[in-house]
Amino acid sequence: MTRESFKTDAFILRCLNYSESDLIVTFYSSEFGKLRGIAKGAKRSKKRFANVFEPFSLTKIIFSRHRPDALAFIEACEIIDHYPDIRTDLEKTLVASYFADLTDNFSPEGKVNIKVFELLQNFLLLLGKEKATEATLRFFELRLLKVTGFEPALDHCAQCKIPLTNGNAYYFYPREGGIKCFACARPERYEEPLSAGAVRTLLLGKTMDLDKIKTVSLSGALAAECREMLVSFITHLLGKEIKSMKVMEQIRRMGLP
């Protein structure tokens, strides 16, 4: 039986060692969504697969498969962009790895979503050009949640539906996927409020032009509030912590120059 070959642009999300020299590669393609494929002899390859299966690299992959739900057989792969400006900066490498990790976790296999591909492409380009900031991280998270159908409701109280009002404190409830005003939330003493300023910054980040993200200064308490909200929501949705986020925090705690 002959197998049809396909050619697509794809981001490498993850590689898993399989046997002595093969790799199982998870990639996010523009035309087929997230796929997993086997690259025979990839670990020893010096020509066909040399340096191509690196996390978050943009590649052109040629693959074939028996059935749409079967593991793809990767026939060839070449690099389009390996983002050298990201790879030579530790913070940027950690952030790009987090982007790939989130994309992997929020993408079911075989579901085509060009917006996810474009989002990853745009943010990797941005990361290559600009500094890796808290705003870049949070706005990627928020936009990924949006394009994958998990956008949190932030512009009004989830219960009384009253629109967000400046100066008020809000509480975010991951289970309900939205914020509640103080009156509706009836918070316990241990619950941390979310300022209207933090919510507004996140709302701004959802649609802001990529070029303008560098102008957003998300630091101190505001950054902590936004981070806590989004990370708790992502952890709730996935039912687990994101590994690359834990590594990023370990390194940040080291307080290196």
Binding site: E54, F56, R87, T88, T93, L256
Partner: peptide, 18 residues
Amino acid sequence: PDVHGEATALLIIKMLKG
């Protein structure tokens, strides 16, 4: 000389600064 090795090298360089 891959992403993991390069990131490790960058981390060590930062740790040895000064």
